[in-house]
């Protein structure tokens, strides 16, 4: 099956973003894979074939983004999906957090998502259909010590999406948020054994999630089955926030 439609996925070179790209390709999307990591992008492109189209870009750079958006407009099927997945952490207790650590995380995770959405949304509006999914985090819902910046950026995505939903829902465009819990990625592999077992003790499902389990939720929200689901925050967290 080929939908003849493009989904723009940020942070798609590896981790959860790569899993999302794979799953969307399996459901017929062409994926415009945006990432700063050129080598990882090319490696993934080599594995995934022609439905995975790599674009090296820093999403905080409006000019670069405009160039990439123009290329995608020319080279790929019409954009009907946007997945804001790119994210970074710069953890520190607030007492010790530098302003640069705050700004960098907000710039990439929140402002970057805003810029990417703005760069591609006109295509969805014209098509009068499409879906926008932003990857938040349970940390945006319940907080985490050492992550005031990250949590603020992830909670910000929720407010942005709920407002954008009110602007776009009448156009047949859904705007949703997926809030992953603790997922087996490079980000969580860096955690100490102590923090890890503390997390595990709080998760009713008693295990970390898999990247593919996030990808499944994203693909569902972007499928025709979910046309009437919009403005929601879907936690995929093994029951952590319930």
């Amino acid at each position: 099956m080929n939908l003849n439609a493009t989904a723009v996925v940020t942070g798609a070179a590896r981790g959860i973003g790569l899993e999302i790209a794979k799953k969307l390709i399996n459901t017929g999307w062409t994926v415009a894979a945006l990432d700063m990591l050129e080598d990882d992008l090319n490696r993934s492109a080599h594995k995934l074939g022609s439905m995975y189209r790599p674009y090296t870009v820093n999403i905080t750079d409006t000019q670069q983004l405009a160039v990439v958006a123009a290329s995608i407009g020319k080279e790929l099927p019409v954009v009907k999906g946007i997945v804001n997945n790119a994210g970074i952490t710069r953890d520190a207790l607030m007492m010790r957090m530098g302003e640069d650590q705050w700004n960098m995380v907000i710039d990439v995770n929140l402002t970057g998502a805003w810029k990417v959405t703005q760069a591609f949304m006109r295509s969805l509006i014209r098509a009068r259909e499409g879906s926008i999914v932003s990857i938040s985090s349970v940390v945006g819902l319940i907080g985490a010590a050492g992550q005031t910046n990250y949590a603020a950026s992830k909670a910000g995505l929720i407010g942005m999406s709920k407002s954008l939903n009110r602007e776009l829902a009448a156009r047949g465009i859904t705007v949703n948020v997926v809030a992953p819990g603790f997922i087996e990625t490079e980000m969580t592999q860096k955690l100490s054994e102590e923090v890890r077992s503390d997390y595990l003790s709080r998760i009713p499902a008693a295990r970390l999630g898999l990247p593919v389990e996030i990808a499944e939720a994203v693909a569902f929200l972007m499928s025709p089955s979910a046309k009437y689901i919009t403005g929601v925050v879907l936690p995929v967290d093994g029951g952590l926030t319930t």
Partner: peptide, 11 residues
């Protein structure tokens, strides 16, 4: 035209 159409039209 609604407000979104107007913005789209102006652009």
């Amino acid at each position: 035209a609604d407000s979104l159409d107007m913005v789209d039209l102006m652009m």
